[in-house]
Nucleic acid binder design. Structure first.
Lengths: 339, 339
DNA sequence: ACAAAGAATGAAATCGTTTACAACAGATTT
DNA sequence: AAATCTGTTGTAAACGATTTCATTCTTTGT
């Protein structure tokens, strides 16, 4: 009975060589003689040997894994970024550890914990709300931010959020809208602020004044979109079009107003942001700004691996192109505006 | 300059004790004298020492992480299960490694790889399509299945799928439907088969014959729901109600038929399965069967940790209660059926 | 024919912990 | 007073790989 798992010692014995040779056969086959190589390989097959990753990592002073820190695992927005990350990390033989920052009581402390725990060779940060000064830790692993980012010059993969907002506003203005509102993400979030700023600038550039009471605060979730719908329905003087800082909010809004008999886009035009999968399956299909999330994940992983391999703590940033997707949730404004 | 990270040796030296004492202070504080304990702890604080997880794991013959294998990371259905898993694994000091089974060419081989790689103390399997005989590996870690499951008696966390289908059919029959169709998941999948079987049985129990041409095959995705919509629209004799094996397919179907001017539930009634977040935000809100996904994740993690701690390869299974959620996508059949 | 270079291998140190065992002091029992 | 126990600490051996350095055996150049 071989109850125990075979070690490199067992293989060495079976092949009649030293452990050094076994190790070399597996990592740098070119330096060992063809005949020995074959002997070793058949001994490996015979014993069913698998290298013990923990021992290997200890000796090589690495962990072989990368931590992905995200605010909320359950948020489907991130799952496609994860898929992109995995598509690079897995082939490169890195494990992908997932951790929730907002799960515990103190997110900043959790961030610091992962930064110092030495459990990963690198960190992908998908949560922009974490304290930048946590990074002043000696010997910390390289960190790459994706989507959100902080004031500090951390390497990051991002998207031209302001430009996205401008695309949305431009489209609505071209359709004839003059009464355009905006539903934001949570205040303080950098995505929120950049898109809001882009929205504001775009409005001035098309010569439409911004109405502060038409700026509604959300938190990117469907529920907050539905809440915005209630607020909109209660308005006496409603905007004829709304730009949402996330598709999820747009979905929540659209469902809620439709259930009240409001027609989209006849009564109100809607533009989202992200192009989540469902956007094209709604009725009407949602006009939105596409963020290539898989691509974001891929670039973030590539950047991080580059830093890990070169041993640097800093690196380049990357800007991913976004795309305006015209569908059917935005149309010309109604003839008569209410109020 | 303390460029290097402090090791247990450094702490021992600073505190004037042996490494054994440092280790004991950190893991079993009760066995060391109060004064020494304080000396060690202040030395730890002073040096900024963090135990090297890799070394610790090697010595303790564990890895400190659990692998979650899922068919497709990008599928949002799984993200809430992940959240449930994380809520148990993180406090228990286990890392959560995520891997995609369908990413590479040979899923079974990938499964086998993770089973033998020794990179995790346990595996959570969310992909029921993997070969059961892969489990005949000596010294493999404990595995728990969630949602899907295989013929082999693996510990699993599941849901009464057949009962869910029966709830859906019962509801539709009570509303007066006699022409009920079903959109399945991919053939061969156990979820698909159990729900289909439940559907079939429920039909006979309410005395409605099953029409094979009203059984459409999907793959759980929104796209396949939209494809089912096209098929349904092309039928000369249409069912007045459809039960979908996933909410995603129901969403894809509903959007597609609505865009063709079909009214839900006036023209066709829809019942989904899962209760994904968007279900309540659609117009009309989707009637469905709730699967408590967070709960599923929690139980799976608990089961797995139990097996890891007790050193067993087998363990109990668990059945999670589902719930019928009545919303507005199913109503009485139209007066006149087409055909 | 002999030195130098090259190719292939092994011995042993090392990575940073944990823990079995031994050692020792002081307290308690006989 | 000897023997036993209890509580605390240190010594040193693992854990399973990788890699430096030394060694042996060929091969090549002069």
């Amino acid at each position: 009975m071989d109850r125990k798992v075979a070690t490199i010692q067992d293989v060495a014995k079976a092949a009649g060589v030293s452990t050094a040779t076994v190790s070399r056969t597996l990592s740098k086959p070119s330096v060992v003689a063809a005949t020995t190589r074959e002997a070793v390989l058949s001994a490996v097959a015979e014993t069913g040997y698998r290298v013990n990753a923990t021992a290997s990592n200890l000796r090589r002073q690495r962990t072989g894994s990368v931590i992905v820190l995200l605010p909320n695992i359950a948020n489907p927005f991130f799952s496609q970024i994860l898929a992109g990350l995995a598509s690079i990390l897995t082939p490169a033989q890195y494990g992908m550890l997932i951790a929730d920052t907002q799960a515990g009581p103190d997110p900043d402390q959790r961030f610091r914990h992962y930064l110092t725990s030495g459990q990963a060779d690198g960190i992908v940060l998908l949560d922009g709300s974490l304290a930048p000064d946590a990074l002043d830790i000696p010997g910390r692993p390289p960190v790459v931010m994706a989507c959100e980012w902080m004031t500090r010059d951390l390497p990051s993969v991002r998207v031209e959020n302001g430009k996205g907002a401008a695309m949305a506003v431009g489209h609505l203005a071209r359709l004839g809208h003059r009464a355009i509102g905006h539903v934001t993400g949570p205040r303080g979030n950098l995505l929120t602020e950049t898109r809001l700023e882009g929205f504001r600038e775009a409005l001035t550039s098309v010569g439409v004044p911004m109405r502060p009471d038409w700026i509604l605060e959300g938190d990117f979730s469907m529920d907050s979109g539905a809440a915005a719908a209630r607020a909109w329905l209660d308005m006496t003087d409603r905007p004829t079009a709304l730009f949402f800082s996330s598709d999820e909010m747009a979905v929540g809004f659209m469902g809620a107003v439709q259930r009240e008999g409001v027609r989209v886009p006849d009564d109100v035009s809607i533009v989202g942001f992200d192009n989540i999968e469902i956007a094209q399956h709604l009725s009407p299909a949602l006009t939105t700004i596409r963020q290539p999330r898989t691509q974001i994940g891929i670039r973030a992983a590539e950047l991080l691996l580059g830093m890990i391999e070169s041993g640097t703590r800093t690196g380049p940033s990357d800007l991913i192109e976004i795309e305006f997707i015209r569908r059917d949730s935005a149309g010309p404004p109604p003839r008569k505006t209410s109020g």
